[in-house]
Design a protein around this nucleic acid. Structure first.
Length: 879
RNA sequence: GCCGGAGUGGCGGAACUGGCAGACGCGCCGGACUCAAAAUCCGGUGGGCCCAAAGCCUGUGAGGGUUCGACUCCCUCCUCCGGCACCA
């Protein structure tokens, strides 16, 4: 009896061996056969969860696979180490954020190493070290010079509880993502990156990535960029407001220009107060603007009814010359288009509602097809469909689609507007009022204004002695010495910027830094980056579909334009993207007196009752693993019990990578059993494999062995194709399981050579079995590398499976000789026949007709047509 | 509201480009081994008709269509999931 499969014994041993032999070290300068595989690097929270395991297991299969195929693979790991949790820990538990972060990194690294992932650990770095963030500061100053970074007052999501500005995605229902405290709109001086300047290029990139990135991500990015073709129209003001003599609007419906009955401006529109001046309506306008600005963002979209106020000012419709009253309206957004909208109540639902509320006229200019007349007084909603122009002067009678073009051209001719493109994309606000981040390298000087910190004074180091004990505010701003510094230009007193950069900036270029993480001649080393970029395969969570993936694409383009990257690097940093699904698990709960769920760990459920309070347990939904839902599976306990190979295999087998995965203990058991089975089979066959010749004898094999050999080659082909590019890892595992089943049968039927007395004639069996088992170990090794290396050694091979390389298949061996052809009559299956793969059509049809059950259905019928699909089926169409 | 995606056995999921639906795994049922259990091994397993077998019928969310043939293509509808959401 062979010894038991004990992963706890073999896994550490092989991890040590791999490390000693430096198997995962990437070359500095690879050739053309390079493969850069990257998983999104983690925030060092201190705990590795199953979502990480899944992400990295998927990546590791690809990395090992490519390596075995002879590619030079770069597979690095690092830490997205700046961010709020460190600061939170500092405040709540009086810890040093740096210490806290590095302790977490040490812990997570230790856990990661339990999994046997093929990282080049020599390239590891954390983004919170000055050797990294100093380059971000340098780049910032260059962006400032080019106008790609700028400062302006802006309305931001301000969390009083967190004392910082939040990104829109960090605000959920008007509350912050972290504590759930209210978020308010506040006007602050903020730093921005000019992403809008790259809108066109970012969109072009999205189109170019079709097929290489998940369609869903591209869709979301396209929506975020929001390119919209329309018309710009200038409405002259009756009386100038300050310097302004006109109001410019953007519209996608220029065809409705003759139906404009009022004008709507956003509350934040710069002319809002100016227009009201001297009209006697100042107070009313001011009150409305204040109220609207202070409304929560959430309320603006969902719960607000149309509201507004007349400014007292008028402009002129450039098409009709009619007077148009100017309103401030709560539904007009300042950061889209021009912040001013020409209102056509007859043909826009929002304008319609507004007009009804304020008793403004409704002028129909598009009539529905079929000659029905629209009566403004009787309309219940705006008519937004296509139709014919009416009341539109020279354009009457035209289809409105034609009207759009003609009116736009007409305006352009008269200098009153013209075609334009509007974008939804906004500039990226990169300011954070936090201390644990990359300091923004500028100094404010009363005399010189905003002055970038000169290169020779970089980096601006984060002070080591930040005081986090006082809740609220930015510790950097409160630091005794940090904020005060001489102006680099005039030497006079200056104030150092105390905002830090959004942590999305660090994650926007870390993949470049991995190409040479210790380079001190600039952010990246040109020749290394030229050799490794782009990332051939990027893998991470769908939650970064727009945020990180948009920022990184933008920043990469900026670095290229600023000359920090060689020109040969393509615009797009990530050639292929895989977004993996979440790891979920069943939940259990009871209800408390307020009918709120009380979540239970599985071990707190006994016979359907709660161990805590005896109440009956409800089996809840399958939800993303989270501590709060108590449906997490601890990594370390798991590895201790089943080993890393089972953890890896299960996360890869239970679902396709891009779909959500439901964690089931029975499924885990199944994977464990499979690996234990491979262990037994290989151990049992070890003697045979060691003794067998290393090539299969030429010539015909007995059918049983030929079948096994064919399956070996077919499986190699299947697994290769499943992994390569397609990432059908679950079906790759299925194929390996099938091969294992066949090998198990063969092993059972093969006597141990040690106990066999000299055979009468040479038996090809051992050689075929040897090929089968060695191939099986090679195919399985990216999924369960420890087990395979151990068995590789036990069956008499030297070195590691990784070094042995990926198996090739022989198409001739893989080719089926005999195929089963389905025989149908009128599309219904009536029989199956086995025929040689190259059998002629006539022959196959003959055999098919002769099949008794088929003949039964053909009898007495007239054969109308015979469909023949070689190697697949014959279908008789009868009457 | 708009834009996507997905609905296949008891469960997770397979099925190339329109060609034998349900691979592989889990679960379940039966058997072997065992004093017994665990582990392991062997067999069965969409539903129905039939004593049984052979065979037949039926079956991929619902309804229709195209086709010799549809999980796959087209139309209508239902459900679930995701994204955007006053974008002028």
């Amino acid at each position: 009896m062979a010894e038991k499969y004990v992963p706890g014994e073999i896994e550490p041993k092989w991890q040590r061996t791999w490390a000693e032999r430096g198997l995962f070290r990437a070359p500095d300068l690879p050739g053309a056969d390079k493969f850069y595989l990257l998983e999104m690097f983690p925030y060092p929270s201190g705990r590795l969860h199953m979502g990480h395991v899944r992400n990295y297991a998927i990546g590791d299969v690809a990395a090992r696979f490519q390596r075995m195929r002879g590619k030079a693979v770069l597979h690095p790991m690092g830490w997205d180490a700046f961010g709020l949790p460190a600061e939170q820990a500092a405040m709540e538990r009086k810890l040093d954020p740096k210490q806290w972060t590095f302790d977490n990194i040490a812990e997570m690294r230790r856990q990661l190493k339990l999994l046997g992932l093929s990282y080049d650990w020599d390239r590891e770095f954390a983004t919170c070290v000055p050797e990294y963030y100093r380059w971000e500061q340098l780049v910032f100053t260059r962006m400032l010079e080019r106008g790609l970074a700028y400062r302006r007052k802006s309305l931001v999501n301000w969390s009083d509880a967190l004392q910082t500005v939040l990104a829109n995605e960090q605000v959920i229902d008007g509350r912050d993502y972290k504590l759930g405290e209210p978020v308010v709109q506040k006007e602050l001086e903020q730093w921005f990156f000019r992403t809008t300047a790259y809108a066109e290029r970012l969109l072009a990139g999205v189109e170019a990535l079709a097929g290489a990135w998940p369609e869903r991500v591209l869709l979301e990015q396209r929506a975020r960029i929001g390119r919209s073709e329309g018309t710009e129209i200038r409405f002259p003001l009756e009386r100038p407001a300050g310097d302004a003599r006109e109001i410019v609007v953007f519209t996608t419906r220029p065809d409705t220009l003759f139906g404009v009955t009022f004008m709507s401006l956003a509350a934040e529109h710069p002319l809002a107060f100016e227009l009201a001046r001297g009209t006697g309506r100042e107070a009313e306008v001011r009150a409305f603007v204040e109220k609207t600005r202070n409304d929560l963002r959430r309320l603006r979209a969902e719960e607000l009814t149309k509201d507004g106020v007349f400014t007292g000012a008028w402009c002129t419709n450039p098409a009709t010359g009619e007077r148009v009253p100017i309103y401030i309206a709560n539904f007009v957004l300042m950061d889209y288009g021009t912040g001013a909208v020409m209102a056509v109540p007859a043909h826009d639902q929002r304008d319609f509602e507004f007009a009804r509320k304020f008793g403004l006229p409704i002028q129909v200019v598009i009539e529905p097809p079929g000659g029905t007349k629209l009566d403004p007084a009787a309309m219940e909603c705006a008519y937004v469909e296509e139709g014919r122009q009416v009341n539109s002067g020279p354009f009457d009678g035209l289809p409105n689609t034609e009207g759009m073009r003609r009116i736009t051209a007409w305006l352009a001719e008269r200098g009153q507007g013209g075609p334009t493109v509007s974008w939804r994309l906004r500039d990226w606000c990169v300011s954070r009022q936090r201390a644990w981040g990359c300091p923004i390298p500028v100094v404010q000087c009363d005399a010189c204004g905003v002055v970038p910190v000169p290169d020779d004074q970089l980096p601006v180091l984060l002070p080591q002695d930040l005081a986090f004990d006082v809740r609220g505010g930015n510790p950097l701003a409160r630091h005794p010495t940090f904020p005060s510094t001489p102006c680099p230009k005039c030497g006079g007193p200056g104030r150092r910027e105390t905002d830090t950069l959004d942590t999305f900036v660090e994650s926007s270029w870390y993949f470049l830094r991995f190409c040479d993480p210790t380079w001190d001649g600039g952010p990246v080393r040109h020749d290394r980056v030229a050799a490794w970029m782009p990332v051939d395969q990027y893998i991470g969570g769908i939650e970064h579909a727009v945020g990180h993936l948009m920022y990184a694409r933008f920043y990469h383009m900026v670095l290229k334009d600023l000359g920090f990257l060689p020109a040969s690097v393509p615009d797009e940093p990530f050639a292929r993207l895989l977004t993996q699904g979440m790891v979920c698990k069943e939940t259990y709960f009871t209800l408390d007196e307020n009918k709120n769920p009380v979540w239970h760990y599985p071990e707190e459920v006994i016979d359907g009752k709660s161990k805590l309070n005896g109440a009956p347990i409800t089996v809840g939904r399958v939800e993303k693993m989270s501590k709060s839902k108590r449906n997490v599976v601890g990594l370390e306990a798991f590895v201790e019990r089943y080993g890393a190979d089972t953890a890896r295999l299960f996360t890869l087998f239970a679902a396709p990578p891009e779909k959500d995965l439901e964690w089931r203990d029975e499924g885990v058991e199944g994977c464990w059993r499979f690996l234990a089975r491979v262990w037994r089979i290989a151990n049992e066959a070890a003697g045979t494999v060691r003794a067998a010749p290393d090539t299969v004898p030429p010539g015909d094999l007995p059918p049983r062995w030929q079948a096994l050999r064919r399956l070996v080659h077919q499986t190699t082909r299947r697994v290769t194709r499943d992994i390569d590019g397609r990432f059908h890892l679950n079906t790759a595992v299925s194929a390996i399981m099938e091969l294992t089943n066949a090998v198990a049968d063969a092993v059972a039927a093969t006597p141990d050579p040690a106990r066999t007395t000299c055979a009468a004639e040479p038996d090809p069996g051992p050689a075929v079995l040897r090929e089968a088992i060695l191939t099986l170990l090679r195919l399985l090794s990216p999924f369960a590398p420890h087990l395979c290396d151990e068995l590789w050694q036990r069956v008499g091979q030297t070195g590691t499976v990784l070094e042995a390389g990926w198996p090739a298949w022989d198409e001739a061996v893989a080719a089926d000789q005999v195929v089963t052809v389905a025989v149908q009559v009128l599309g219904k299956l009536r029989g199956q026949i086995a025929v040689p793969v190259d059998a002629a059509e006539a022959q196959v049809v003959e055999r098919a007709k002769a099949e008794p059950n088929v003949a039964r259905f053909l009898e007495g019928k007239k054969l109308v047509k015979t469909i023949f699909v070689p190697g697949r089926l014959v279908n008789f169409v009868v009457k």
